[in-house]
Design a protein around this nucleic acid. Structure first.
Lengths: 142, 142
DNA sequence: ATACTTGCAAAAGATTTGCCGCATG
DNA sequence: CATGCGGCAAATCTTTTGCAAGTAT
């Protein structure tokens, strides 16, 4: 049973056959495709269909939204128009996107996290969420 | 003459009547509506139409894209689906968005800026762009 | 029975584009 | 004259929704 399926049980999200397939595909994303994998709905639909052809894209849309609202997956609006998803990580991380290849690298920097809280506080706000995306080009090493 | 019109001249972007109106509306955004103002295309179109009814929304789309490509305005994809624009600031800043009111506060934090560069470098990348958005709730003061 | 799910196709919302007349250098 | 620009409507792309049939409680 995949991690996402586990979380669905925890949160009382009913697990239908379709949702199980989608959950597994999303849980497998990292393992099968590497840490850079943050598929969009279309890509998810393709992977899901390779397991069960009958699952419609509407169901994929409905399911990722459902999972997102339950805090089970995270939605990212990176540049490029389409939303991309990943299983909610155990420990939060941010993203560096290779502007040439689209490759995504995850990172954490505690100092930045701390500073963000401080900045918000200084402005009279309690930080409830944040988005940090770095866009960069690979440095060629000689 | 507005700042955006100036920049168009600098960059060799031809200034038609429609573009002048759009440039002025965008330059006026901050002054008339406060620093929280980052209008979307629909809102821009409304403001533009209050000056010249004949300017179509297609022209507004084409013009903001043109300005963006020339580095004259900045596009932001905050949560909410539609892109929002602001005149490119003299000094870079990031945004804190009030999740309740939608109000936007601009801020700069040099420490965070520096750390971002370092993080990218450590990962083997040259930072070419970044996006930092804080989402928060107002702290009530007693 | 009752409430939730799904597939399909249609709808919706944001943005882009083809066409053609018009303006500008 | 030649190129670019703008208005309009149609097209496109992503995402959502109404409906009717199917499934689970």
């Amino acid at each position: 049973m995949s991690k996402i399926e586990d979380k669905c049980k925890e949160k009382g999200v009913r697990l239908t056959d379709q949702r199980k397939v989608i959950a597994r595909v999303m849980s497998d994303s990292k393992i099968k495709y590497g840490s850079k994998d943050h598929p969009d709905v279309d890509e998810l639909h393709k992977r899901v269909n390779s397991i069960d052809e009958k699952i419609s894209i509407a169901t994929v849309y409905r399911t990722v939204k459902l999972f997102e609202e339950a805090g089970i997956v995270e939605k990212h609006d990176f540049k490029g128009g389409k939303a991309r998803y990943e299983q909610s990580p155990d420990e939060h991380h941010d993203h560096l996107i290779d502007v040439n290849s689209g490759e995504i690298i995850e990172f954490v920097n505690e100092e930045i996290e701390e500073l963000q809280k401080k900045v918000a506080q200084k402005l009279g706000y309690k930080l409830v969420d944040h988005k940090l995306e770095l866009y960069g080009t690979k440095i060629k090493k000689n």
